[in-house]
Nucleic acid binder design. Structure first.
Lengths: 196, 196, 196, 196
DNA sequence: TATGAATGAGCATTCATTCAT
DNA sequence: GATGAATGAATGCTCATTCAT
């Protein structure tokens, strides 16, 4: 059997899990439900994923991969440093809003469950920060600034972006506020935020 | 029986729920566990709270009350507008970091569960934004600016603060970053954020 | 306090229980619900009724009293024996259909629960059979027939009436059958049933 | 695994449920109890029955199948119309007395629970009435009588039989009455009942 | 008398996981 | 690989009853 075929069920399980996660929230998704949705047996899922946590963690990994890859291609595509930073910010927000099921499990799993998430997987997570750091560094221009400052700036920007995505997703933004305008303001202010 | 004694169990239930919520995440806390922790029967909890949702919502309410009250006393105490805004930001961050169990349920409940949260309770939640708005308005000085702008600025600031609290709480900040410095940078940048 | 006042709450409890019994079925009525409906405390009910069974049994007793009393007044009022028997049958059916909550607990409680119903209370229940027996005896006229036969006829009539009431109450009668015609046929046939 | 073995647990669950239903009444039988009685886990029951209602309804269905099948074989076996009607009546009574647990759930479920019983299942239930109707029609002979009358007669007979079964089962028959004689009288009178 | 807080046992149902086939 | 029956523990919630006040 070809590898692609061998893993086809694995793929379908992950897709179903992701879909259900979005539809019903993490605590309302059971292995049974995923199996029903995929059209396979409960036991079949355990062939591909040792347990539920590992299944969830696979999704988290996928999520980070997608986010980082999209950020990396923007980094490669946009030459002007300021525009690049803006594009990275817009992309981050859009990723969060368009993939809420990924974003949810990537950033809203409680500490207990995250503790079981293998540490080396975090490295990929951090690469998003690095992309932003590099953009800031190039804006601040010279490389004469100490290394820690663009990285701190990146954290500030990340905080703004992450907070915004979360508040929008959880419907905490006041109805009087225009969402598109809010996002664009955040993107513009993110650039200022880098100048510390 | 004195009132304080009469409601002592109610208080202990709320405290235990809050503690367990922090320790184990919202979906992992059961009425049984709370009862065991408090040392009462399951049924006793239903004497004070009609159902689990109402118990959780009581906690949310308490959380908003504490946050808003602390913000209001800062608003009353700090006269200089810029310093006041900074103090409000610091206080917000500290509230989140010192009361992670409140913060978690106040802001990390999914939309489905929030839908069941009575609408009139949201008004108190929004007062935090209003306090920040007022500070921004006073900074921008004159009142000549259109009403919607300070409110939008307040949302930007809130995004930054909320994102920062969440990332710190979920231990996503890189170990190389000094947390106190990051917080102080955020506070300073929040003031700039208001000038849109 | 006058007796009538003293027992007013008792009366209201019985009425509420009867109402709820009809509305929701016996297994869905709880002491709590009765208390809420009456507007008294749970404990207050235990002042008047040792436990739930005794409360139910009081209702059963009341039911038999009402049924037997109405039969006795018909016996006294209708002189012609055949007409009297018909009137008794009609009255039995109407009692069952108009007081389904009484009829339900009088005749549909399972054996286990009935076992706890004090035996001497059954004597009142049997008086309905006696009234019918007397009517039959008078129809058969002479008193020369052995005593057991009218009593057996009374049991046959009772079976017909009881079966009819139950089937109507449980909605087992075919829609094509006219209910009033069915009842009147039963009444007429009951008279024939007595001639064994 | 052979089919008979595969469904052995299902069978044992139904049997235990039937037994417990008789012993304790419908509202006093829990899934837990059935599981304990069978010696399996609670969850195992849900492998075979989606929920408690469906388990109960399976039992009801079985009951009607048994009753109707036994009536149909009598219809086929007894040629003389009057004797056939008598045999059908005897068989109905004996079915009720020998399978009180089936009879109880077939005819003593309250309307609320029956509402949840799928409508198409009622068709089988009605076939008992049809068998009796056919016997009456043949007795009345000619087919010149309007169709509705044998059906009404069947309802009268059913009322008598059902009432008798119920009163015997609930031990409401006076001790002085000979049960076999009562039943035989009912059977004889049933034939008269059909002549309306 | 009457209250209502509290108990302990119970309910139907769902879950992640295992394992013989 | 894949099945699906089975488990054991857990879930939110309700109940009849008791008892200090």
């Amino acid at each position: 059997m070809a590898i692609s075929q061998k893993n086809e069920l694995r793929r379908r399980i992950l897709d179903a899990a992701r879909k259900l996660l979005l539809e019903r929230g993490i605590s309302q998704v059971s292995i049974r439900m995923i199996a029903t949705d995929v059209g396979c047996s409960v036991g079949a899922i355990y062939t591909y994923f040792e347990n539920k946590d590992i299944l969830i963690h696979s999704l988290i990994e996928e999520g980070f991969e997608r986010l980082v890859n999209s950020q990396l291609s923007i980094e490669a595509a946009v030459l002007d440093p300021v525009e690049r930073l803006k594009a990275l910010c817009r992309n981050y927000i859009h990723f969060g809003l368009k993939n809420p099921e990924y974003y949810e499990i990537m950033f809203h799993l409680n500490a207990e469950r995250m503790a079981r998430y293998p540490v080396e997987k975090y490295r990929k997570a951090r690469r998003n920060l690095e992309v932003i750091s590099r953009a800031i560094k190039e804006i601040s221009g010279l490389g004469t600034v100490s290394v820690s400052e663009p990285f701190l700036g990146a954290h500030l920007i990340w905080s703004l972006l992450h907070g915004l995505v979360t508040l929008i997703q959880f419907e905490r933004i006041d109805r009087k506020i225009d969402q598109a305008a809010l996002i664009e303001s955040a993107v513009i202010q993110a650039v200022n935020l880098s100048a510390i």
